[in-house]
Amino acid sequence: MEETTQGSSRLLNGFAETVSPAGERVAQTATEAKIEAIGFNFYYGTFQALRNINIRIPQNRVTAIIGPSGCGKSTFLRAINRMHDRTPGARGEGQLLLGGANIYGEIDPVKLRRRVGMVFQRPNPFVKSIYENVAYGLRVQGVRDRRVIDEKVELALNRAALWDEVKDRLHKASGTALSGGQQQRLCIARAIAVDPEVVLMDEPCSALDPIATMKIEDLIHKLRANFTIVIVTHNMQQAMRVSDMTAFMLMDSATRAGELIEFSPTAELFTNPKDQRTKDYVTGRFG
């Protein structure tokens, strides 16, 4: 909750600004769903972690997923680029579509992950130079041309607002030599260097201090122009600050399976929730 105090004043100002534009944009682009789940279920072995998720995540928007711990928000996020494949017994059922193609069917997971980048909860740069960290995705894709890589690395670091801080030690310093906030921006640069269509962020600021958090949030705002962003956060103020659309998830108390309760434009979800459970959660009555 360390962001709450510094966020509260910004919150009120920023909140008023985003209410109407966010609503309009979504209304216009409601048909352009980048990611769409239709009756999607997810299982860890015999345990059902997600039940009947139906959601249309719009293109070039920031979509936040909020909810109490254990509600399946991270499970859903990681299902989008099949990060669960390494977990024995984890499987998805039903339809989870990326640009119309089923993620758990037609798309090869390796190709899928080249289209869907991911930023993790804790910054996880490689023990390589800053340059090689950002160039990694390009090398994975087999790019060999030095000039192309140079260009893309600079572009990605610029977009991640990190270029000026690291440009004189690109090849000399390890990615792990940076501060926590810089490392996370490096991870964002690494993810966007390959021009993915979607960037998934799993609580990207939870290991960062308020100032680093603010920089990442500013960055998310800018990145919206080029990427579809899905961000999981347990911080409601953050969801209000960065997202256009917000999904609220909750664990069913009887079956312990995560369900999608409500999905609306952010302003609407926080000011005028349709579901009583959403209202209880966003007003701090539980969770």
Binding site: V110, R113, F120, R190, A191, V194
Partner: peptide, 8 residues
């Protein structure tokens, strides 16, 4: 995970 998420 970071490497796998890059499509490696």
């Amino acid at each position: 995970e970071a490497a796998l998420a890059m499509g490696a």
